[in-house]
Design a protein around this nucleic acid. Structure first.
Lengths: 197, 197
DNA sequence: TTTAACATGTAAGAAGTTACATGATTTG
DNA sequence: CAAATCATGTAACTTCTTACATGTTAAA
């Protein structure tokens, strides 16, 4: 009954309480790396969660100009989160624009296809470098190796991002290679800029 | 102006014409691996594409019971597809349920988390084996190595699926390992396993 | 004094899901 | 005779995006 966004918000609140504004920021980064949402979606969803008794709010005098609502997860909210994690994952209702484009790439002349792939490759390598920098910080902290600490999940999610982006870079290199291009100027993990200098 | 689904349909029709029903089947497999859509979405979208002059239909006597519409891509449709492929990719409006769950996994007791990860690992390995079997077929065909043939794109898209699933399996193994679990039983086709023994 | 950060909402529309609705031909 | 395949649509609803709307406090 609870939407995916609802679960994301419950997960956020299980870590610590926060205002709608605060949750919006936390949805941008780090959650936005794997589940994006705008404030215009978040405020109504919080109201729905509260209607269902999964969260609760208290009005506090915060930094803002008007009465600010500080949301907390309830016991029922924790149960809902737990039930969701124990429910089977519906195998992937995938929507991957990148693969769709590759699947259409035969219609382009090879030099254009090559230019496209090189540009994408750079974007993936850049994001990979970002994840790796974050991971270095997280791995150094206490709690990153304790499975019941939030930081363990940060660490694990980041690792997924890293392995995923490495796979993207390797895939693009594979395609570039088969289109007869020369190797791109950078290596996986480097912070990447186009050679245009 | 054209939606992502519209582009998927144009891409499908650039390969060969087809009825709405036929396009629905082709959207299930192979396109459904990276862009899912139902017939209830496809029929109205075809009408919109036709309104925009990107596709055209002729009524034909087919196998079905009623007048069947056979859609063809127009020159304008090919230009739209081309323009889309040349336009920048808006970096990822990601929505990845799997990572969201991992990011919440710290709330579960470790044995439950382990059970969850092992189940998911198996699903990824199964899908990987499926892709690898398809890839073996595709790679053997003429055209798979010719960049302007549709089969080149089939081959490339499948390679992305394979590398992506291998990354998923490796990620899950990484997490299972860090939760102190033993390695799951491996099967032929997994192709990702750490050296056995 | 202007901009950024804090703070919360609504509205219109696009995109996607699930269910409803119909009906002929072929295969088991 | 039943089920699968072929074949095309609509309706209701959820989810998500983009834009509109308002207003304070602190820093540059």
């Amino acid at each position: 009954m609870t939407s995916m966004l609802g679960h994301a918000l419950l997960s956020l609140l299980a870590r610590r309480p926060g205002t709608g504004y605060d949750l919006t920021q936390r949805m941008r980064r780090p959650v936005g790396y794997f589940w994006a949402a705008n404030h215009s979606q978040i405020y109504p969803e919080l109201a729905r969660l509260e209607e269902g008794g999964l969260v609760r709010h208290r009005v506090v005098e915060g930094a803002g100009p008007r009465p600010t609502k500080r949301y907390t997860i309830t016991a029922a909210g924790r149960r809902a989160l737990d039930g969701w994690l124990r429910s089977p994952v519906s195998d992937p209702p995938t929507r991957d624009e990148e693969t769709l484009r590759v699947w259409s790439l035969w219609t382009l002349d090879p030099p254009s296809a090559l230019a496209y792939l090189r540009a994408r490759r750079t974007q993936h390598a850049t994001r990979l470098a970002e994840y790796e920098a974050l991971q270095a910080e997280v791995a150094a902290e206490r709690g990153a190796h304790e499975p019941t600490q939030p930081l363990w999940s940060d660490h694990a999610a980041l690792q997924g991002g890293i392995l995923g982006r490495r796979a993207e870079v390797a895939w693009h290199d594979w395609m570039i290679d088969r289109l007869g291009g020369t190797a791109p100027p950078t290596r996986a993990g480097d912070s990447v800029d186009p050679p245009t200098g």
